[in-house]
Amino acid sequence: MSELPAAGSRRPEASLSVAVGARVGVASWWRTPTARRYLFGYSLLTPAVLYVGLLVGMPFLFSLYLALSDATVGEPIARFVGIENFISALENATFYTALRNTLVFTLGAGILKGLLGTSLAFLLVQPFKGRRVVRALIVIPFTLPIAVSVLGWKWMFDSQFSVVNWALSNLGLIGGYGSADWPVWLGQPGLALFSVMFVNVWRGFPFSAIVLLAGMTSVAPEILEAAKVDGASFMQRFRKIIVPMIAPILFVGSAFDTVFTLSDLSIVYLLTNGGPDGATEILPTLAYNTGIRAGALGRGAAISLFLFPLLLPAIIILLRTLRRRQY
């Protein structure tokens, strides 16, 4: 790059040549392979950045704006109220029930999905006749429209016509309809929470299994064979070889599952709507009933944003662990 002449000694021809030289320099830089590489890279990245910015960033910022305002469904121009809506949520006794249920629901369902998904993945990785068909069938719960499958479960948990209860009753495990030991799946507080969690697990564990299966098939059979020859037990092979090798897939799968479960509104909304007496109330149902059905958008947004501090550390920890393992 040319140096600028000292002040006072500037000649018109010299400055012109500097400017032209700089322009030529910049123009020629754009033709370099480095510039082209940058341009290509950023142009590939742009759609993803726009997608995340428009469909994730903007709604998030908008919900933050709502949570800090007294917005209602019918009042587009809202007043800034600071953290008043968050304080209001903390003053609401139902909020604590919803928070506790959300944690129990997410952790319980996550653990069950992990266990069942792992077992299923081990079964499906074995060679057997009709394996492809079974693999296709197993994902049906995950692919069915959620409203349809949940309504099916609603019938199966019906207090009077539950097919589960009739089967148990005919097997002699419980009494008949109307007897004291006839389970009311969606009516007894502990059972109701278990039931909504069960449906979430039923729907989600095939996804866990498929994710694990994809990881397992990427583990070279020779490594496992070598470990077997060296005398490693099944659990040792699983813990010391399979899990470390499929850890990146496992982490991403867990992150997805945690996010989906924490923000799952449909199952609880369709099965119990948070009842009875808040036994199955979770933060998404409370936020929906407050923000949309009651119209208090600001308070609804604040309740839903309480999920954010729960999710953010979990995702950060997962991603950092993942990065550390990669390098």
Binding site: D158, Q160, F161, V184, W185, L186, G187
Partner: peptide, 19 residues
Amino acid sequence: PEVFSWDDASDNRFLASGV
């Protein structure tokens, strides 16, 4: 105790069942 689990249509079925 089944009344704790009822939805809007449960009582319809309850009556129709003859119970």
